[in-house]
């Protein structure tokens, strides 16, 4: 049975992790590669790096972060931030990423999703949607949530998948950082119109919220940043909560360092 994925997300700026990170026993909390290793050892199912600089200098630093992480962590990596073309995707994948999230460029010009899917396969193309509630609908935002587009999120999600997105990273801007739980109606509304996997993002405050995104929101994966970074919820607690709610999770015993469990 396919497992629900638990995905810690690291915001990276010029090659360093931003947003506070407070891992016990981790000397350099700002190094995304050290954090990636720590999450790898705790049994994360996937990691997400978001480049929040999205500048040329930031891009070079990001490639370096991906390469150094992929050299040490044999786990799936999703990378996003400032991706404008299929060629940008190829560069990220070449550095060791498995999937690349695209936002502004694809909202401005959805046809780019077609060329990306053709170039790298739709399984590597993640449509990152940042959305805000407008009554009983949701509006798509771009440029890291700064620019309203007037586009309806549900209709856009459907179109993105038709064109080539293989996964939706769905972030509720209303809930992001609030720790009030995910926007369940949003997740359900997108689930109703797309057949690709959905990653729930924005609002995780505890392990129970993660479980709700799966059992009520029907998400295929849950993404969170601060609750993991600050140790408010460990990956083991997240796994336990999901399992208790009836979701299928990868057993902890099957996870170990490369030198560990496989022996």
């Amino acid at each position: 049975m396919l497992k629900t994925r638990i995905i810690p997300c690291l915001d990276v700026k010029n090659g360093r992790t931003v947003k506070g990170v407070n891992f016990v026993g981790l000397r350099d909390a700002g190094d995304p590669v050290a954090l990636a290793k720590a999450y790898d050892e705790q049994g994360a199912d996937e990691l997400c790096f978001l480049d929040i600089t999205a500048s040329v200098e930031g891009r070079g630093a990001m490639i370096d972060v991906i390469e150094r992480t992929a050299d040490q962590c044999f786990m799936p990596l999703t990378v996003g931030g400032g991706v404008r073309s299929a060629d940008d995707m190829v560069a990220m994948l070449g550095a060791g990423a498995d999937k690349v999230a695209i936002n502004t460029a694809a909202v401005d010009n959805p046809d780019i999703l077609r060329s990306c899917a053709r170039k790298v396969g739709r399984q590597a193309v993640v449509m990152a949607l940042d959305v805000k509630r407008r009554g009983d609908q949701w509006e798509v935002f771009t440029h890291g949530g700064r620019t309203p587009t007037g586009k309806d999120a549900i209709a856009f999600a459907r179109r993105a998948v038709e064109l080539g997105a293989g996964e939706i990273l769905l972030t509720s801007m209303d809930r992001d950082g609030t720790k009030e739980g995910f926007d369940i109606p949003l997740l359900r509304a997108v689930r109703d119109v797309v057949t690709v996997p959905i990653i729930a993002s924005g609002g995780a405050g505890n392990a129970r919220h993660l479980a709700e995104a799966v059992t009520e929101g029907l998400a295929d994966a849950v993404l969170a940043a601060s609750i993991f970074h600050f140790g408010e919820c460990t990956l083991a607690e997240a796994r336990a909560a999901l399992a208790e709610a009836g979701a299928s999770v990868r057993p902890f015993s099957a996870i170990g360092s490369a030198a560990g469990e496989a022996r």
Binding site: D45, R122, Q123, G166, D220
Partner: peptide
């Protein structure tokens, strides 16, 4: 109802 791509960890 099962999503395509088949993406993630499976046995």
């Amino acid at each position: 109802q099962l999503p395509i791509p088949h993406m993630g960890w499976n046995e």
